[in-house]
Amino acid sequence: MHIPDGFLDTKTWVALSAVSTGFVALSVVRANRKIGEKHVPLMGIMSAFIFAAQMLNFPVAGGTSGHFMGAVLAAVLMGPFAGTLIMSIVLAVQCLMFADGGITALGANIFNMGVVGSLSGYLIYFLLSSAIKGKTGKLIGIFIASWASIVLAASACAAELALSGTIALNVALPAMAGVHMIIGIGEALITTTVLTLILAARPDLLELTKI
């Protein structure tokens, strides 16, 4: 759901660039307080993995494809604001090097996937894994949070398109949320599988200080 140049009007992309700059600055401040020696290479790996996995578009119904987003994977392992930082770096490289996502829409894309995706996804995971105890609670939380992160990010994208006058909200929202409810199942399956493997092999990685 990388928004290209041309979909957002000036007021919308300028406002979202400002909001995202604020969230990235806040994330840097939090990271500075909490980052440990182990976080540095692990966050590098997390970015690299998310970048690679985002290249793998899988077919979904009706001649559409979807790809992994990764915000909840990063947030569950490293913390919600680490998720924001990782998504921001991946999106910035995709935009500047690969022309994937517009430069004027970078703030909006960081907001949708890095802020809405990571922070709301982590909140849902936190609430569910606190309510349901043990490994089951963790995995249910991860599955639902990663599905919801896609649907919420896509809904934010629809709202921005509507705010820009590109398409009416009552058309954009059901269309964007609808297709991403299907893509979100892929997100949930991938995130849950990766985290199940990590929980089995290195459960200590889920116990790192959350940024």
Binding site: M1, H2, D5, F58, A154, A172, A175, M176
Partner: peptide, 23 residues
């Protein structure tokens, strides 16, 4: 990987605003 349009591109095609996209 699949080269089909992604969710946003598909909505853009169906709802007729995909031609606004540029780089």
């Amino acid at each position: 990987a699949s080269s089909s349009p992604d969710g946003l591109e598909k909505v853009g095609e169906d709802k007729g605003f995909i031609e606004k996209a540029h780089s």
